[in-house]
Computed example of a mutant assay.
Amino acid sequence: MADIRYDFRSDTVTRPTAAMRAAMAAAEVGDDVYGEDPTVNRLEHVAAERLGKQAGLFCPTGTQANLIALMTHCERGDEFIAGQMAHLYRWEAGGAAVLGSIQPQPVLNQPDGTLALGDIEAAIKPVDPHYARTRLLALENTMGGQILPQGSVGAACALAREAGLACHLDGARIFNAAVASGVAVADLAAPFDTVSACLSKGLGAPLGSVLTGPRDLIDKGRRLRKILGGAMRQAGIVAAAGIYALDEHVTRLAEDHANARRLAEGLAAVDGFVIVPPDTNIVFVKVTGASAVALKAHFLSCGVGVGTAYGDRLRLVTHLDVGKDGVEAAIDAARKWRGPAS
């Protein structure tokens, strides 16, 4: 297999910068299980403050942060509503059902990533012993790189609250949404009770997410984190990377978005390539007349790693470890495409 020189598979492949590593090395630490790691405590406070919430909980992964959120809002036999393409429904190993005994109720995502209000309303179960109890609406922003329109978010959350539901946001890339839309991240988070935000991906920390929300739910979540095996000891070393990411890497997300636009424009100029203009840092590519698997192999032969093929679609994600030279290399590889025999 050819070596990957330019890695567009995901923004999860980023590595800590030298300055971030220095911050990690200098971190003051303590035992976080006892609540004594000052760097973890600071990260939780900073993240909660940025997102406009009372408290935060540092988790090793976004998957765990979302699962904790679901389990704080829902009891055994309860149900949450989410989009068919939501990460916490489709790509988190069924954890809510396996570990929380919580039933997912997926509904169709619209082309812009939103959920239709009529679909949400129809999915809410009546109070009847035959049904799971609908307790939560979970949305995701960005959704496949698309920014959810804030008006749609507000309307969906208002509908949920009228029905007595809580609201959770999988904000894995919420800072991308804030930078690209010009809307403050706290305003994007405001309609939701709880919000998870990823510190890796575009922000470039080596790991970690912060779940934010009301203090009572976060206190409950801290116990759930222990149950789920996510309690850590001298975690300030990695929490320092998260603080550095929040302080230094948010505004630079605009560079990733600009690189994604350039990438989309270059790929769209190649015959057979169909591109949806990206909102943020994720570019989806459809190729006509050939398998996306073959196209993925072609990119790899040119030293360009791209995301998993979905039928006739590929995904390319820009991030701090692929700059303009990587974008041009990907465009050049596309220009060399001659179909499955190439």
Rank of each mutant, 00 (worst) to 15 (best):
L108F: 02
R225E: 13
G213N: 08
V183S: 03
L224N: 10
S200V: 03
G151F: 00
P106H: 07
I174H: 07
D170G: 14
A166M: 09
R223C: 04
P104W: 00
A166I: 01
L211I: 06
L207S: 13
H87L: 08
A93R: 12
G229W: 08
I227T: 15
G145I: 07
Y89C: 02
V153I: 14
R135F: 07
G171R: 08
K226E: 15
H87A: 14
L165A: 01
S209N: 13
D128I: 09
L115R: 03
D119Q: 09
H168E: 11
Y131V: 00
N141A: 01
A180F: 04
Q103Y: 14
C198R: 06
T212F: 02
Q150A: 09
P106S: 08
S181C: 02
I102M: 06
W91E: 12
M143L: 12
A190K: 12
A231Q: 12
E140D: 05
A138G: 06
R135G: 06
G230W: 02
L115E: 01
A166S: 15
R215L: 07
K125W: 10
I174R: 05
R90H: 06
A138S: 11
A186F: 03
R222F: 05
K220F: 06
N176V: 04
A177K: 05
H168F: 14
G229R: 10
L224K: 10
R222N: 10
K220L: 12
A186R: 11
A205P: 04
G164E: 02
L207M: 14
S152N: 04
P214E: 10
G208M: 02
S209I: 06
P126Q: 08
W91T: 09
C167V: 14
L224Y: 05
E162W: 00
D119K: 05
D170L: 07
C157V: 15
V195K: 00
G208I: 00
T114S: 09
A138C: 12
V195F: 04
A132Y: 15
